[in-house]
């Protein structure tokens, strides 16, 4: 089967390094493409040959199971050759390894590089060093664009449209690239975003990104359509952002009591992996009437297929778009 790539010019950027700066129609285009893969992924024969002969390298400088697996599966289902590279990062030589590794891999002529790195801006830096398309699988606290896209796809399928929805993003916003990408995407698509967290986990001036900030769960969750919980990134916390997990859960963990103020059909989301009993009560997480956490994982593969397909096939690229994408 052949794919008509003529409409791929709807996404004219060479890379996908973040959501910031994307236009609504570009996001919709990626979501529409993703949609077409959801059914395919539910069939017995999941494989296509769209990307046959293409090479995708998953370059992960940070531990990841789900994102890496998701990209790997997506690439394979499109018929591409997928290589996984996990680069152990010693604290001192990380940066050198990034550039060196990029140059080495570039010499092997990959078509798409998927990169995850613990430093913000690393995906951008790498994209300047290679000739192929780069998809960010998460860079530091900066962005995690495919996560925001899969979240959007999940919401869109449940609610039909993102515009007008009231979304609460709760928890460790400070360390979260998922939160930043979601803020950009949801604002671009016309949803309204609230953040709820203790002040120590809210980054400076974030309200300038077009969000409302709350420090009380029940106040912030009032009448929300969507509740996005964030993982508490304890590994990124060197100092004390809150006194104890017990106290954190008491004030900011999602349980039925706090959920009682949202719209009755509000969806519960979490990018995973979850810290049960820390940011989310186990019962709530497993409430399949409202929790769409497993659906998010499913949508992840579809979204990554769309991104790999669009960026991996030849298309018209407009390099005059100086929006760093």
């Amino acid at each position: 089967m052949t794919i008509d790539v003529s409409d791929f010019s709807a996404y004219p950027h060479r890379h996908l390094l973040g959501i910031e700066g994307l236009f609504p129609h570009e996001i919709s285009f990626l979501l529409d493409r993703s949609e077409s893969y959801v059914d395919q992924n539910r069939q017995a024969d999941k494989k296509k040959s769209t990307l046959r002969g293409r090479t995708i390298i998953n370059l992960f400088f940070e531990n990841s199971t789900r994102t890496r697996t998701s990209f790997e599966l997506a690439g394979k289902r499109l018929g591409a050759d997928v290589i996984n590279m996990s680069v152990a990062t010693s604290a001192i030589k990380k940066g050198e390894t990034l550039i060196d590794t990029a140059m080495t891999l570039n010499a092997m002529h990959p078509d798409v590089l998927v990169v995850r790195h613990p430093d913000s801006g690393a995906a951008k830096l790498l994209s300047e060093k290679v000739n192929c398309a780069v998809i960010s699988g998460g860079d530091g606290r900066h962005e995690h664009p495919t996560q925001a896209l899969l979240d959007a796809l999940t919401i869109r399928r449940r609610r039909g449209d993102l515009a007008g929805l009231q979304v609460a993003i709760c928890g460790d916003v400070l360390h979260s690239r998922v939160a930043r990408s979601n803020i950009h995407l949801l604002n671009t698509m016309g949803a309204r975003v609230r953040l709820i967290a203790p002040r120590t986990l809210i980054p400076d001036s974030i309200e300038r990104m077009g969000v409302e900030v709350f420090y009380d769960m029940k106040e912030g969750l009032q009448d929300c359509d969507i509740v996005m919980m964030l993982r508490l990134q304890k590994e990124r916390m060197q100092t004390s952002f809150f006194p104890s997990v017990r106290e954190y859960f008491h004030f900011f963990g999602l349980d039925y009591e706090k959920l009682s103020v949202t719209k009755p059909d509000a969806l519960i989301m979490h990018p995973g992996p979850m810290n049960r009993g820390v940011e989310i009560d186990s019962e709530v997480a497993d409430d399949y009437g409202r929790s769409v956490i497993r659906e998010q994982v499913e949508m992840g593969v579809a979204v990554r297929m769309a991104c790999l397909e669009v960026l991996g096939l030849p298309r018209e690229i407009d390099d005059s778009t100086v929006r760093n994408l």
Binding site: E20, S120, G121, G140, H142, E143, R177, R180, P203, D204
Partner: peptide, 21 residues
């Protein structure tokens, strides 16, 4: 300033970089 790498504020927040207040 411990892990800070640029001026604290909107731009640092957007870039996901730790701020120096």
């Amino acid at each position: 300033t411990e892990d800070g790498v640029m001026n604290q504020g909107e731009l640092a927040t957007r870039l996901g970089l730790s701020g120096i207040p």
